[in-house]
């Protein structure tokens, strides 16, 4: 992953040089991109530190045995939905949490189920959706996707177990 990070850093450097020159020459697209950048950056600054602190607390306080015991079997899937429903932000918060669950010994099947479910069952999103589009619509979406993500996560988890998969960045 080190090589990727060098490429990322280069790209980020070029981006800031671009912003700098946009300022110098009052290049309008550059200024607009900067506006979007600042707005989204502030959104991330509101979510990420809190999310990572909660994940840090989870790391320190929740015992490995607790996760191994509760994150297994049918009850494990119920907990995964509960966790997915209360995940804030978006997938970018679900990944670090999944990595912590992985380190605490949750099965890959459950971790992928959680990741899929974090896209589908987030409670604020579900409430928003049902009020703007319709309750029937949301119920259909939830009921149809549940068996699909169950099948896909079990299949993917089992496949990766056999391949000896490990999380890459999981400090």
């Amino acid at each position: 992953m080190k090589r990727n990070h060098v490429i990322y850093a280069l790209f980020i450097g070029v981006f800031f040089i671009f912003l700098f020159y946009s300022h110098q020459t009052e290049f309008s697209p550059g200024m607009q991109i900067q506006q979007h950048f600042i707005i989204f950056m502030l959104q991330m600054l509101k979510v990420l530190p809190c999310a990572f602190i909660i994940i840090g607390l989870f790391d320190v306080w929740v015992k490995k045995e607790t996760i191994q015991k509760h994150f297994s079997g049918i009850r494990g899937y119920a907990y995964a939905i509960l966790l997915a429903g209360t995940t804030v932000g978006g997938l970018y918060v679900a990944f670090p949490l999944a990595c912590s669950l992985y380190k605490k010994g949750a099965s890959l099947q459950l971790i992928f189920f959680y990741l899929f479910a974090a896209g589908i069952f987030r409670i604020p999103m579900t409430v928003f959706e049902s009020s703007f589009v319709g309750v029937k619509f949301t119920i259909i979406r939830l009921l149809i996707s549940l068996p699909l993500i169950l099948i896909f996560s079990v299949a993917l988890g089992t496949y990766l177990d056999n391949k000896g998969f490990r999380f890459e960045e999981c400090s």
């Binding site: 990322y8 989204f40 990572f52 602190i53 607390l57």
Partner: peptide, 20 residues
């Protein structure tokens, strides 16, 4: 816990920047 949070955030900082 706070140190663990800082370490995790720092490890993923570049990809996050790129995403933003």
């Amino acid at each position: 816990a706070i140190w663990s949070a800082v370490r995790k955030l720092q490890a993923i900082l570049l990809p996050f920047f790129l995403m933003i």
